[in-house]
Design a protein around this nucleic acid. Structure first.
Length: 612
RNA sequence: GCUCACAUAGCUCAGGCGGUAGAGCACUUCCUUGGUAAGGAAGAGGUCAUCGGUUCAAAUCCGAUUGUGAGCACCA
């Protein structure tokens, strides 16, 4: 499901596994053709943890058909069919494809011959099934384990990944070299789903989405708001240390501003439609004004830059804001906190001279590094997102300044190389105004999402006529670096929930300490502890008072509260507390003052684990 | 936006081949004052997403709408 749809698997996957998966795809197709006469074939490649095959079906296949489909596949495997390759010259190949009656295979064959100049095409046959296919495959179906694959899901997918084309039915399956590997993978997958931010977000009361508010417009509950506030506090501190200045801007602006920046022609579809208001001028004329919800903060920040005459001595000028932006994402894209229509972004814009770009980028990347190491985030990858000069809609997708694109991309590449960072380059992933470095995180289901981004903007400052006076006394246009290490609260918290499995480190946890009493007669002591902790700005609370100790511990644990304090007669007498940390069975009893100090230190240092 | 699936109490779910619903948890009250992952009892809580159709009768069958999920497309 989640994988790159290129159909390629990573190099680490063994050649044998590749053959097994690829061959199983043919077996799946064979079984589907048995079940649905008249089905036509699309592509059926191996992928990261299995394979898929695309079909146009006369009757839909649903989850209810999976057992039957798997049974048929096993029956086919049992026959031990050999996989034969045939290489046919072009004319014969097309004759055969016509015979097969496969319009999509034909389309692809034509492209292979025309664009790639192939003179012959490869076919694979196993039993009655014939497919135009490059291979490689196993020699015989006997080489494919019968119990190491599992149909996973069915979904729509456009032919050749283009929404203008037919929607096909894609059947995904897991496949491995043996049953143990399959079972382990399925188990890991289920475990990962337990960490789904939508599930945990509900269980831990982090956010909710209400239909009457609107799709993609999450409501942050008190617990979630604590996490946002803590992240924002951390961002503020890191940014302060790096010389950023905070600003605040409204959520809306006149529509004309976004025409001037270029957002509107490029991104009208992604913006909420304008709010039109009638305003009476001083002469009594009624004037119609249109306002839009801002889809990004940059124009507002640019206007702050433009609010006074700037000297090169003020640069780099770093303006930061956790700003709210609104984007009208397609209904099918919206889901949970990962894709929303209203979000709060850890935004900042750095205005600098050309000579300062490299240093500023390095500083920003160092800031990312600090932020991620505090949070213990490691599983990310970097992507240098470039424009695609050959994009058919290139002119409407990217600013048309080829030289600026090339030089700015080269600049980013140099920085990444100098810092010896691993990254992949991706064509056609740039912002319309410039290239960017994206930080990609995998979701619980394995799909990659861009979380954070650093962008180099060579276009918009010029459009908004931003300028500073250089040492030469002339006006110059500054460059602008857009950056958001903490992404949006929405997306970043979603990833943090999944990263921590809902068990946040103390400094980030909505409830940091819950005090449990052995019996109600110790409530007064417990109240005192809570009050003292709260006076020290610790998010402490009293557990329920009428349940059994077991029950209270269970509740505290299922809420994933990092620190439970248990107090009874022993503790009251010695002015102590018994600490039970999340996920750790063994407990420690210590003087309350000691606990308070350790806790303070844990919070202040934003420790990932309790220091005790 | 597209394909497929799903929608029953605050949550997790059962049931229903047509005769207006059930469990556990949570909630409220009472009993219990209990030392390490669910003490006991009672109570309250639902037009079975919405609208329409078929029918003597619809929560159940059909259709549309809305919402949700997986994936595709999109993604500043």
């Amino acid at each position: 499901m989640p994988f790159e749809h290129s159909g390629e698997i990573d190099a680490a996957a063994s050649e044998n596994l590749y053959r097994i998966r690829h061959s199983l795809a043919h077996v799946l197709a064979q079984a589907v053709l048995e079940m649905r006469e008249g089905a036509t074939l699309g592509f059926g490649p191996p992928i990261q943890d299995g394979f898929y095959y695309d079909f146009v079906l006369p009757e839909p296949i649903t989850e209810a058909d999976f057992p039957d489909l798997e049974r048929r596949m096993r029956r086919i495997l049992k026959k031990g069919q050999r996989f034969y390759q045939e290489e046919l010259p072009k004319a014969d190949a097309f004759a055969r494809i016509n015979e097969m009656g496969e319009p999509y295979k034909r389309e692809y064959a034509e492209e292979l011959c025309e664009k790639n100049g192939l003179e012959s095409l490869s076919f694979y046959r196993n039993g009655p099934f014939l497919d135009m296919c490059e291979g490689p495959h196993v020699d015989t179906a006997k080489d494919i384990p019968r119990d190491a694959f599992k149909i996973r899901s069915v979904a729509g997918a456009y032919w050749r990944g283009d929404s203008k084309n037919t929607m096909m039915t894609r059947i995904y399956a897991w496949a491995f070299e043996d049953k143990a590997a399959l079972d382990a993978h399925v188990e890991a997958y289920k475990l990962a789903q337990e960490r789904d931010h939508k599930k945990l977000g509900k269980e831990l009361d982090i956010f909710t989405i209400d239909n009457e508010i609107g799709r993609g417009l999450p409501l942050w509950l008190p617990n979630g708001t604590v996490i946002r506030d803590e992240l924002e506090k951390l961002a503020r501190e890191l940014e302060f240390a790096d010389g950023y200045q905070r600003v605040a801007t409204p959520h809306i602006a006149k529509q004309d501003l976004f025409y001037r920046t270029g957002h509107l022609p490029y991104y009208a579809d992604d913006m909420y439609p304008p709010i039109e208001v009638l305003e009476e001028s001083e002469h009594g004329d009624v004037v119609k004004e249109a306002y839009v919800l801002k889809p990004m903060n940059c124009p507002h920040h640019h206007k702050i830059f433009a609010s006074s005459l700037r000297s090169y001595r003020e640069l780099p000028l770093r303006l930061a804001e956790y700003g709210h932006v609104y984007r009208f994402e397609d209904s099918g894209a919206v889901g949970g906190l990962l894709r929303v229509r209203g979000m709060c972004m850890n935004d900042a814009h750095i205005y600098c001279t050309e000579e300062q770009i490299a240093d500023e980028f390095r500083n920003v990347i160092a800031l990312y590094d600090r932020a991620y190491s505090i949070l213990g985030l490691t599983g990310y990858s970097l992507r240098l997102s470039c424009w695609d000069p050959e994009d058919p809609q290139g002119k409407s997708k990217y600013v048309d300044e080829p030289e600026a694109w090339e030089s700015s991309q080269a600049a980013l590449r140099t920085i990444l190389n100098e810092l010896e960072l691993d990254y992949v380059e991706a064509k056609g992933e740039a912002a319309f105004y410039g290239p960017k470095i994206d930080v990609q995180f995998p979701t619980v289901t394995g799909r990659e999402e861009s979380v954070s981004t650093v962008q180099l903007d060579f276009a918009i400052p010029k459009r908004l006529d931003l300028k500073y006076i250089g040492p030469d006394g002339d006006e110059h246009v500054p460059y602008c670096i857009h950056r958001a290490p903490f992404s949006t609260h929405e997306r970043f918290v979603a990833f943090l929930i999944e990263h921590f499995g809902g068990a946040f480190p103390t400094w980030l946890a909505p409830v940091q300490v819950r005090v449990l009493t052995v019996s109600e007669q110790f409530d007064e002591y417990a109240h005192r502890l809570v009050a003292e902790l709260r006076a020290d700005f610790v998010r402490a609370e009293l557990g329920s008072t009428s349940d059994t100790v077991s029950k209270k511990i269970r509740e505290g644990t299922t809420r994933k509260i990092p620190n439970l304090l248990i107090v009874g007669e022993r503790e009251v007498e010695a002015n102590e507390v018994t600490l039970r940390r999340y996920g750790i069975r063994e407990q420690t009893t210590m003087p309350f003052e000691t606990f308070k100090q350790k806790l303070r230190e844990t919070i202040d240092t934003r420790a990932l684990s309790f220091i005790l």
